[in-house]
């Protein structure tokens, strides 16, 4: 009898579908390096406490996604495409934690009304206003006028930045543009009146296609730039604050622990961990005396490593 039971258990384990209850499904938008880094960090932190099944979006059909939304312990889409796919096919009650997603994109996602609010959360890839403006203040203590060019998709971000700027006694000049053709003119207007230019991720205002123009223009105006990625600082932004896929992946795992303990996910939020990177060559060329990196991290409230 016991041997038959054991045999049945083994059969059940062997045939147990990957999407069965208790499994965390990590759905990557793409198989790129950044997604792999996030995935590895997430899995390492979850450790042996739960099973993590990793998918790339290409591997997942609509029906599978629907099934997962019914049975998974939690769905963790990584990136905008995966998050949107999950949202579109969510018919069950599985909680969702979107990782590495811009806040503006996250807020645009349409979730089924039946899914409780505390079952949906996100760790944004962008930085909170206090951090980006904090970096501006720490790296350029004499700067009082901060320029910003955005498209309407970032209206909420701009509003938060304006609030933060007021608290910090900074004057934020915001130019809103509707078309990529208006970037140059808007940038010119803002740079005339700015000690530093803040870049926030924006599909129209700053992207891989126009980053070169934007950086060259700011350099001609001799205005230092605060960027939002390592790539931007390498390209020419004097300082950038960003959260790496690893940092976001780790925090994602902590969110899952919290869910296990409290029964619900923490509110959507920016990554708690971040890195600061400088471009010392551009800083020197612009005559900017960079502050001590540890000091800046401390001012921004980073946990000391």
């Amino acid at each position: 009898m016991f041997r038959r039971l054991l045999f049945l258990c083994l059969i059940w384990l062997a045939l147990r579908p990957a999407w069965a209850e208790g499994v965390i499904h990590l759905i990557l938008s793409d198989s790129g390096v950044a997604y792999q880094e996030a995935s590895e960090a997430f899995r390492a932190d979850i450790g042996a406490r739960a099973t993590v099944k990793v998918w790339t979006l290409a591997e997942l059909g609509a029906e599978q996604a629907q099934n997962l939304s019914r049975v998974a312990k939690i769905l963790v889409p990584v990136g905008v495409k995966a998050a949107r796919f999950v949202a579109e096919h969510h018919i069950g009650q599985a909680p969702v934690l979107a990782l590495m997603i811009p806040r503006a994109a996250s807020e645009k996602l349409q979730w089924p009304t039946s899914l409780g609010r505390r079952k949906i959360s996100a760790i944004y890839i962008d930085q909170p206003p206090s951090r980006s403006l904090g970096l501006a203040a720490a790296a350029f203590p004499a700067a009082r006028r901060v320029g910003l060019v955005i498209s309407p998709e970032n209206a909420a971000v701009a509003k938060d930045l304006l609030k933060e700027a007021t608290l910090r006694n900074l004057r934020l000049t915001v130019e809103t543009i509707n078309s990529a053709d208006d970037v140059a003119a808007a940038l010119r207007r803002v740079l005339q009146d700015s000690d530093v230019l803040l870049l926030v991720p924006d599909a129209i205002a700053i992207n891989a296609g126009n980053a070169q123009n934007v950086l060259l223009t700011t350099y001609r105006f001799r205005t230092p730039v605060i960027g939002f990625s390592q790539g931007l600082s390498k390209a020419g932004a004097v300082a950038s604050v960003y959260s790496s896929p690893k940092q976001i992946g780790q925090q994602g795992a902590q969110f899952v622990h919290r869910m296990e303990e409290d029964g619900e996910l923490p509110m959507p939020q920016h990554a708690g961990e971040f890195s600061v990177v400088f471009n010392p060559h551009v800083a020197r060329s612009l005559g900017v005396a960079l502050p001590n990196e540890t000091e800046v991290r401390r001012k921004l409230g980073a946990r000391l490593e």
Binding site: D126, A180, P201, G209, A211, L215, G231, Y242
Partner: peptide
């Protein structure tokens, strides 16, 4: 350049070293 939707790719984009 045409506008595209903002995504995490904008954070990891390989940019040429401009300056």
């Amino acid at each position: 350049s045409m506008a595209q939707e903002l995504s995490e790719a904008d954070f990891f984009a390989e940019l040429p070293e401009v300056l």
